[in-house]
């Protein structure tokens, strides 16, 4: 590989990590009590990322489709779990539903992107599949977690309105309609917002990374545009998926609102 960028040595890494001393000093001086969290976060950041770097090096070197799929599955599972862990309520099958909607939507849009648009060869080329999937997952995770949380909070908050409608002969779909729409909307807002200000307020990480790696800015933005559309589609599908699955749990086929299936969790 021709190197158009300056690699960072271990010494430089240590040098950069001393920047965290600013946070430490501030926390200490203002008694924010964040020293411990900052310490843990710093160690986790370094260990997790170095580890991921080595694993990816290894996956790229082995060039095995099964291994790529396995890594993709593990990434999706972690995203599915993380999405639920940010919500305030749970129902029994919530983790499976979250995994299913995130995995299905991300796999679909990433598949379309790498096969239909970028046309990579071989089809599993980890250099493309893994970072692209990672970006899609990171965004769908935020979307689904917001949508799911909003949906569960709303059915609890609007319980009497929903049940009044059911009692007058509404179907479960009619009774939950507004709540479903609100939840999906909530999940999609961050993506739409970031599409609005991209380039003006923020330079997306992927584009920045490509530019640092020596790619022409004009080429880098093309990648960024493509990935943005993919993220938007993936988030929309995942939000719809998770809200529909949660709807089927919380509203029974008998058109009953089953809040007894919902449990509040203390975080």
């Amino acid at each position: 590989m021709d190197q158009n960028y300056i690699p960072i040595s271990n010494g430089q890494l240590v040098l950069a990590s001393s920047l965290i001393l600013i946070n430490m000093g501030l926390s200490f001086g203002l008694r924010l009590g964040l020293e411990k969290s900052l310490g843990i976060a710093t160690v986790r950041l370094v260990v997790q990322l170095l580890l991921v770097g080595y694993i990816l090096d290894w996956v790229f070197a082995l060039d095995n489709p099964w291994l790529v799929l396995l890594v993709a599955l593990i990434m999706s599972a972690i995203a599915g779990h993380a999405s639920v862990s940010r919500t305030r309520r749970r129902f029994p099958s919530i983790y499976w539903h979250s995994l299913l909607s995130i995995l299905a939507s991300s796999a679909l849009v990433t598949g379309l992107l790498v096969q239909g648009v970028i046309r990579i060869d071989p089809w599993y080329d980890p250099q493309y599949v893994i970072p692209l999937l990672g970006m899609v997952l990171g965004n769908t995770l935020t979307g689904t977690s917001l949508a799911l949380d909003r949906f569960m909070e709303d059915v609890v908050r609007l319980r009497s309105q929903i049940e009044s409608l059911l009692a007058l002969g509404a179907t479960r779909w009619e009774a939950a309609g507004t709540t479903i729409k609100e939840a999906i909307r909530t999940g999609m807002i961050p993506t739409i917002n970031s599409m609005m200000v991209v380039g003006l307020v923020s330079l997306p990480g992927m584009m920045t990374g490509q530019i640092l790696g020596g790619v022409n800015p004009t080429d880098a933005v093309r990648y960024q545009i493509v990935i943005f559309f993919t993220i938007a589609a993936g988030t929309a599908l995942a939000c719809m998926g998770i809200v529909m699955l949660a709807f089927r749990v919380l509203f029974s086929a008998d058109h009953q609102l089953r809040l007894d299936r919902l449990e509040k969790c203390d975080r």
């Binding site: 009497s160 049940e163 009692a167 002969g169 179907t171 008998d254 058109h255």
Partner: peptide
């Protein structure tokens, strides 16, 4: 059909919920 039945046998909640 539950919606059809419920339109015949209407339950009125203790606490009224209006739009």
């Amino acid at each position: 059909s539950k919606p059809r039945y419920r339109a015949q046998v209407i339950y009125l909640h203790q606490r009224p919920a209006l739009l």
